[in-house]
Design a protein around this nucleic acid. Structure first.
Lengths: 252, 252
DNA sequence: TTGCTCCTCACGTCACGTGAGGTGGC
DNA sequence: TTGCTCCTCACGTCACGTGAGGTGGC
């Protein structure tokens, strides 16, 4: 190794030495992060060791996850900016937490071959839901918090009953007798659900955006997602349950 | 809860229900991901449940880490796109690996209060390096692979000797006797280093960009970073070591 | 009349990527 | 002469953010 030859590098050579691209180098010139070198007679840039050192440092900090603005601040500081490094560490920790959370959710979806937008608690039953059911649980996910959605997932995960199928297939013009019969059976089931999950007696209280907003959204969603007969059946279920609690409540 | 009232939402209300911003909603309109709703007489948009459902799904997929283009593809597909979900999972795994690697590096820097651009193997000795030393190890990091840099870190981590200090402080106009004396001592040390790390006998072979490129870069870096006397000392070290191996080599 | 919300351009952000059109050495 | 490298604009990408300027209901 001789130390006498002085080598200069072209933009491409410099970029390759630092494991980056020609355009990145030019970008660092533009934003003032990297000084422009002297030029050859033909206008070609002639980079030297000082530029290589600077570029390697920029790449290192960039790979760690710092923005170019943060890199500029760091380069200008005399002391190591431990605060900035700690802030970066916290950001990375948050990134990791989010990505791990997403992977856990994806694992549930992949296991059940469910669509990508399925909420994990509904992953196991995604196949059994029709279009309306999928729309409805999507709204549930927007209205309730995670714990509540997990509970709701458990409810839907119960083995499909004849009543579920009857509800799904209730024609829009079903007669009142059919609606009433279905409502009676559904009410019985909801009563059992209320035993297991008492918060269901007043679900709007468990909603994120406040009771008022939750009731409005759910009412609108039911009215727009289900057909008129299905809506009447749900109304009847509400009435049947209200009568019960109303009978035993003072001043009802 | 009454199911009779039909509610419509303004852009802001819709955005809040889906936990996003007004501008995001408008952006989804622009790119065709979300249909525009009908308007009121005054031109205000009137969103309904179908838009809320769609927006919640967009947000869900976006939060998982899909691009809007991928979301559009997913929404158009009949079957769940398990391939896309697996690809996303792999991306997330790579993101996590990178972030964890960065955090491990940051931990070393924070422990030793080293500057952010310090390579981890040099973290423990960052304080002892002067500007030239820091520039030099930055170049080393660009030339050698990780295992080699780790070895070099161990070398530099050895307790500071008087020779190190002499080299750092060697004046640019030092006389030949001083240079020769220093070179002799440094050569002795390098000999011991070669015992521990045999690849150091031909370091350019361990370089990333090929031998030719590595020798050029290192030669240029030494010539531009160190002062003339320091360079002469290093040249002498090379000569002393070459004489040794040359004596025992056939045809020297 | 004032304050608040809604609307539509239009330009900005971040870190570059991608041609477009021209020059210079072998 | 051809192929390759270098150069400088200038516009594109991605997912929105940020005013700018104007309207409408209370």
């Amino acid at each position: 190794m001789r130390f006498t030859e002085r080598v200069v590098w072209s933009t491409r050579e410099l970029a390759e030495l630092a494991g980056t691209t020609v355009k990145a180098v030019r970008h660092y010139h533009e934003v003032g992060l990297l000084a422009e070198p002297e030029r050859a007679a033909n206008g070609y840039k002639r980079y030297r060791t000082s530029h290589l050192v600077r570029l390697l440092r920029i790449r290192r900090l960039s790979d760690l996850g710092l923005s170019l603005a943060e890199i500029e601040r760091m380069a200008g500081a005399a002391e190591p900016d431990l605060e900035a490094l700690r802030a970066l560490d916290a950001e990375l920790a948050a990134t990791i937490a989010r990505a791990e959370r997403a992977r856990a959710d994806l694992a549930v979806l992949l296991e059940h071959r469910a669509p990508g937008d399925t909420l994990p608690p509904f992953g196991p039953v995604a196949e059994r839901l029709d279009g309306r059911g999928r729309d409805f649980v999507t709204v549930l996910g927007g209205v309730f918090d995670e714990a509540a959605v997990a509970d709701l997932g458990l409810l839907v995960a119960a083995p499909d009953t004849a009543d579920d199928t009857d509800f799904d297939q209730l024609p829009a013009d079903a007669d009142e007798a059919a609606v009433e019969s279905l409502a009676q059976r559904l009410a019985a089931r909801v009563r059992r659900d209320h035993e297991r999950l008492p918060w269901l007696r007043d679900p709007a209280a468990a909603a994120r955006g406040g009771r008022r907003r939750a009731e409005e959204v759910m009412a609108t969603a039911v009215a727009e997602i289900f057909n008129p007969a299905q809506v009447r059946a749900l109304v009847r279920v509400q009435e049947l349950l209200a009568d019960e609690s109303g009978d035993s409540a003072p001043g009802a």
